[in-house]
């Protein structure tokens, strides 16, 4: 790789690149959770559409049903495809001094937060996630909401040990600092 930055004391191409890191996929149960929650959403959408058609004075109800259900089906198909394909892109990695999370099928995003910049960590579990015993790990930085890191789909025990590990690392790296 050519060096783009000659003025730096360290050649960035000699630093460990994030491309070579072994990323771990998140728990497959997370895919089920996201599919169930989108199914619930679509049930609500269909119910809403039926209510609108039945309670308003449409002249041609069949046409109304055809158009609305067609649109919803199309939307549902797109949603399911994107959820399934996008799931493979959700991966994370713990390195010696930072934590990385990647996601995004069409717009791929890779966020890296160094341990010595983490303010606090918390675990979150929604009702459907509780059924499958998975958690989301939320890491807060001072960089504001947009830079907070959320890793979904972690099994209960793994999530807990990961949170402890991150907090321990944060303390170590932070203590080194001052």
């Amino acid at each position: 790789m050519t060096n783009h930055f000659e003025n730096l004391s360290i050649n960035p191409s000699e630093l460990p690149s994030l491309e070579e890191v072994n990323f771990k996929p998140i728990d497959p149960n997370y895919l089920k959770v996201s599919l169930i929650s989108s199914a619930l959403f679509f049930v609500a959408l269909v119910a809403g559409a039926i209510a609108i058609i039945e309670f308003s004075d449409f002249e041609e109800k069949t046409n109304g049903y055809l158009i609305s259900m067609g649109a919803i089906l199309l939307f549902l198909a797109a949603n399911i495809t994107l959820t399934i394909l996008g799931f493979k892109k959700k991966k994370y990695a713990l390195r010696q001094r930072d934590i990385i999370y990647t996601k995004g099928l069409i717009w791929s995003v890779r966020t890296t937060v160094p341990f010595n910049r983490i303010q606090h960590a918390e675990l979150k579990q929604g009702p459907i996630e509780r059924l499958y015993k998975i958690n989301s790990l939320k890491l807060f930085t001072a960089g504001g909401q947009s830079s907070d890191l959320v890793i979904p789909g972690l099994p209960d025990d793994e999530a807990l040990s990961m949170k402890d590990f991150v907090l321990k690392k944060t303390e170590e790296d932070g203590a080194e600092q001052s």
């Binding site: 930055f5 730096l8 960035p12 690149s17 994030l18 890296t112 010595n116």
Partner: peptide, 14 residues
Amino acid sequence: EALQLESFILYRIQ
């Protein structure tokens, strides 16, 4: 270029 920037900035922060 982006990858080099990324690893350099992370290295500097850490």
